[in-house]
Structure formats: structure tokens, C-alpha cells
Design a protein around this nucleic acid. Structure first.
Length: 492
DNA sequence: TTTTGAGTTGTTCGA
DNA sequence: GTCGAACAACTCAAA
């Protein structure tokens, strides 16, 4: 039933045409649909915004526009203030309705309140939809309406809901045929966005995100022997290609979460044993994604302060040269450094490594988790406030369902367990390429003659450890114990 | 309201 | 080398 002649679909972090709730709803209610995206210079100039994410988004926008053009339409690419640009577009194309998908980030919610008000004041109806998460912040809550703070009961509830109320992908593009606004109607819009014009380099090795590449990735991952089969174990090892690699896609919305879950469930049906275990483990990761999104929506203060109030007492040390060394992958701990170099070189970091470097920064170096969170945000192609914040607060023992403070990673021990042969380390740290296997996790223990022979002189070719593990561990345990038990006044 | 069981991802120490 | 205990209580969730 068509209630509107023309409607606008305002895309934000859902850069796709398939399995897009707002687009689908608009296509049912509007005779003509105009797809829009707003580039906002102040947002792009914010110092939390990093080149990798900008490149992923701009690439996805360009790909989306190409698809729309093949359909005889175009993307209404705007640049300016959100409310101003959208009200102007609505007036230009004669739209009486705007559809969009909700974003739980506090700054996005604030922006949306403002835009919705501006549009409604001008008589434009606005329809927000739930799309970015499988289940929203109000779908999964405890009796009485309180949000879950612990993952396991949240997951249990999520799976129960899945068994009675799954959310299949919304019907696809066919419904849109012939109803997309013509380029003439859309009028003049911005050229394809270039990172350089907003001060970002475009020459990094950034992942390419488009709706088609996302679909192929999902298919490849779930195909027999495609990664999901061995996921439960393989995902722990950074030298293996054991993860889905879908995170930039889920960030930019080049694939829909319902599509991912539906594909996983379909594969699960026909599988047994380790394969089924692999699929289950992956679904659990998708549930974590919903969980942290929900936490962000229900506890927006986590973006600025610890979830656990007592954690405000932790006397973080000022970030100085040690923080600098951490960012450059020059801490002297091979796996930590390899991880940071992977991030700097590829704009992505393996999940286990994220935990290890986060534990190292917040525990061994006692640097505020917000410093690490910020660095990740600027350097990850999949930078997402909810997941990133949740992960950092977990590692720092300041978050929901936090690790007990004494659960502290030992970077050497982790290295032995998850990169036993040093394959990953050597792939990221050329200085250590010729270090014998038995010394790769602790190269500073090499005799000087061996250091010379391997071309890895400690303190010359590769840094000596910037902190001593045992001492920094004890220091962290003392500080956290005092701070979290409410005993302020601890000094470092 | 009270009680009870449980809680992503670890490390170290001593038997 | 392997194994269990200690790390330290505390909050959450549900009965």
C-alpha cells in the first residue's frame, strides 16, 4: 500500500540495498524511493575518525552508487549539515517521508533527534527502523525491563528468542525495480567521495567493502572447508586465516546481520561435529555484537567513563614514551609488536591479539584504556564504538562482565600458546625473521653471538622489553586490587 | 526478599 | 609435564 508519492531512505551505516529494513519499508510505502547519504565535514574532521574507516565507507558509497546507477537511478550524495541537507533534499524531490535505520552510538542518537525534529517541523514523516542489530536493545531484557549486564544470560535469552521469533532477511531488490528515483529527480549531487578531499590518505591497504564483496566473503566463509568449519579453534591463531573477515562489512553495513544469521543457521542445519561447533562459535560472536550494541544503548556513559564506578579510582599512568612504543610496535615483546604492526599495516587486528595488546597496555603499562580505545578507533577499518569500547573495558577490567583484574595476559605465554612457531611474529617483524624458534618469544634471552648472527641485536635492531613482566604484573595487581576495592590513594 | 549458582578468552605455584 | 588451587570477593540472574 503506497502512502507516499516519494520517500527518502537516509543511509548511514547500512550501505547496501539488500536486507535493508528502512529501504524495504520505504519501498512498500512509497511510489518512488530516493536513496541518500550525507557527508558531514565536522564529523569527518573529528579526531576520533580514522583514515581506514573513511576509506571503507567511501569505497562502499562509491560501489553503492554504481549499483544504483545500473538500476537507472543514482545516490543522492550530499555534503553539509545533516538536517539542512535532508530537509533541502526532501523539498527538492518532493518527499513527505524519510526512512532510516537506528544507530545506537550516543552521538548518532543525538544527531538523529535533531534531524527528526527538523524534518517533522517541515511536515515530513520520519520512520526509524531496527536493522543494524539482530535483536534490539528492548528485545532482550530481564523480567521487569532491566538490561542484561552479563553475556551468558543475555546469550541464552537471545537464542530462546531466535527459536520462536527469528528475523529473516527482508525481501530484496526486486521490490525496488522501477521505483528508484531518476537522476533527474535527484538533481545535482556530490561526485564520488575522495578521502583526500577530507584530509585522509587514500593510499593505505584498506579492505574493500561493497555489497557484492561482502556477499562473496560470507559465502566463502560458510562454504564447506571455507573457514566456519574450523572456526572454533582456528580463530584463536593469528597466523591462520581462521576468522570471517566480515567486520568491516558489518561496520559499514555492506552486509545485513539477518543475512549473516540466516546463512549460518542454514549451514548449521546440515552440519555436525566440529563444523556445527564452528558455526555455533561464530553465531556467539554475532551475539556478542548485539550484546555490546545493547550495552552502549542502555549505558551510553561507557563511551566516556568506566562501566564499573569503582574503576574511576584506578590511577592510570600518564601515557608517554611507553604508549608511543606500544603504538609503533616497539615494546620489545614480539607478539605485542607484531599485533600493533598488523594493525598499522593492514587496518585490522586479529581478535586474540586485540585482547593481548589491550591487556598489555592497560595492565602491564597501566595506561588508561581510553587511550587504546582511541588509537584503535583511528586505525581500525572495522572501528565500531560499541564493540571497541566493550572490548577495551573488558580487557581493562572496568566493563560489563569484566575480566577479574587478576586475569591478566602474559604476552610471552600467549605467544607460546597461539603463535608457537613464531610464524605470525616473523610475518610482521622483519627484524626477527632469522631468530631461531626457541628464542622467538623472548628474543632478549638470545646470547649476543646469536643476536649478531640473526641480525637481531637487542636494543639495536629490535627493542629491549620496555617493562619487566613480573614487576609490571605485580604492580598492576596491587593497583587494581586497591582501586577496585574502593581504596583510593594508591600511588604508582 | 532471600538464596543460590554462576560468571569469554588467564597465570602462577606447588604438589 | 600435569593438575588443581589460588588469585578475591562481588555482582548478576533467576528461582
Amino acid at each position: 500500500m503506497e502512502r507516499y508519492e516519494t520517500g527518502i531512505v537516509w543511509l548511514r551505516r547500512d550501505l547496501r540495498l539488500r536486507d535493508n529494513v528502512a529501504l524495504y519499508e520505504a519501498s512498500k510505502a512509497c511510489k518512488t524511493v530516493c536513496v541518500a547519504f550525507v557527508l558531514n565535514p565536522p564529523l569527518l574532521a573529528d579526531d576520533r575518525m580514522g583514515a581506514p574507516l573513511v576509506n571503507v565507507f567511501f569505497g562502499a558509497i562509491t560501489a553503492l552508487r554504481a549499483t544504483l546507477r545500473r538500476e537507472g537511478s543514482d545516490l543522492a550524495l550530499l555534503c553539509g549539515g545533516f538536517a539542512q541537507e535532508l530537509t533541502a533534499l526532501a523539498a527538492r524531490v518532493g518527499a513527505r517521508a524519510v526512512y532510516f535505520n537506528e544507530d545506537y552510538e550516543p552521538s548518532a542518537l543525538e544527531r538523529d533527534r535533531h534531524v527528526v525534529e527538523a524534518l517533522r517541523q517541515r511536515g515530513v514523516d520520519v520512520y526509524p527502523h531496527l536493522d543494524h542489530v539482530y535483536y534490539g536493545s528492548e528485545d532482550i531484557e530481564r523480567a521487569g525491563g532491566a538490561p542484561y549486564k552479563v553475556f551468558t544470560p543475555y546469550k541464552r535469552h537471545w537464542l530462546e528468542l531466535l527459536s520462536v521469533a527469528p528475523r529473516p532477511p527482508v525481501p530484496s531488490l526486486r521490490t525496488l525495480r522501477g521505483r528508484l528515483a531518476s537522476p533527474d529527480t535527484i538533481g545535482t549531487t556530490q561526485p564520488d567521495p575522495a578521502p583526500e578531499s577530507f584530509g585522509f590518505p587514500a593510499n593505505g591497504r584498506y579492505p574493500h567493502a561493497s555489497e557484492s564483496s561482502a556477499g562473496e566473503r560470507l559465502k566463502a566463509f560458510l562454504r564447506p572447508d571455507g573457514g566456519a568449519d574450523a572456526y572454533r579453534n582456528a580463530r584463536e591463531y593469528p597466523s591462520l586465516d581462521g576468522t570471517s573477515q566480515l567486520s568491516p562489512h558489518l561496520r559499514a553495513g555492506t552486509i545485513g546481520i539477518r543475512t549473516c544469521v540466516a546463512a549460518a543457521l542454514e549451514r548449521r542445519e546440515e552440519s555436525r561435529g566440529t563444523t556445527r561447533a564452528g558455526i555455533d562459535a561464530w553465531i556467539t560472536e554475532l551475539i556478542w555484537r548485539d550484546f555490546y550494541q545493547t550495552i552502549l544503548k542502555r549505558f551510553p556513559h561507557v563511551t566516556v567513563s568506566p562501566f564499573v564506578p569503582a574503576a574511576k579510582n584506578i590511577p592510570w599512568r600518564p601515557p608517554g614514551t611507553e604508549f608511543e612504543a606500544w603504538t609503533h610496535g616497539r615494546t620489545g615483546y614480539p607478539l605485542v609488536d607484531a599485533a600493533m604492526r598488523q594493525l598499522n599495516a593492514t587496518s585490522w587486528m586479529h581478535n586474540r591479539l586485540r585482547m593481548i595488546v589491550a591487556s598489555f597496555l592497560t595492565k602491564n603499562l597501566l595506561v588508561d584504556w581510553r587511550m587504546g580505545e582511541r588509537y584503535f578507533e583511528r586505525h581500525l577499518a572495522d572501528a565500531d564504538v560499541a564493540a571497541n569500547n566493550g572490548g577495551w573495558q573488558w580487557a581493562a577490567s572496568t566493563g560489563t562482565d569484566a575480566a577479574p583484574y587478576f586475569r591478566m595476559f602474559n604476552p610471552v605465554e600467549q605467544s607460546r600458546r597461539f603463535d608457537a612457531g613464531g610464524v605470525f611474529i616473523k610475518s610482521m617483524i622483519p627484524e626477527l625473521a632469522n631468530v631461531p624458534e626457541r628464542f622467538i618469544h623472548e628474543p632478549w634471552t638470545m646470547p649476543p653471538s646469536l643476536q649478531e648472527a640473526a641480525g637481531a641485536r637487542i636494543g639495536v635492531d629490535y627493542p629491549a622489553p620496555i617493562v619487566e613482566l613480573r614487576a609490571s604484573r605485580t604492580r598492576a595487581l596491587d593497583v587494581f586490587k586497591a582501586a577496585l576495592s574502593g581504596d583510593a590513594g594508591v600511588t604508582t
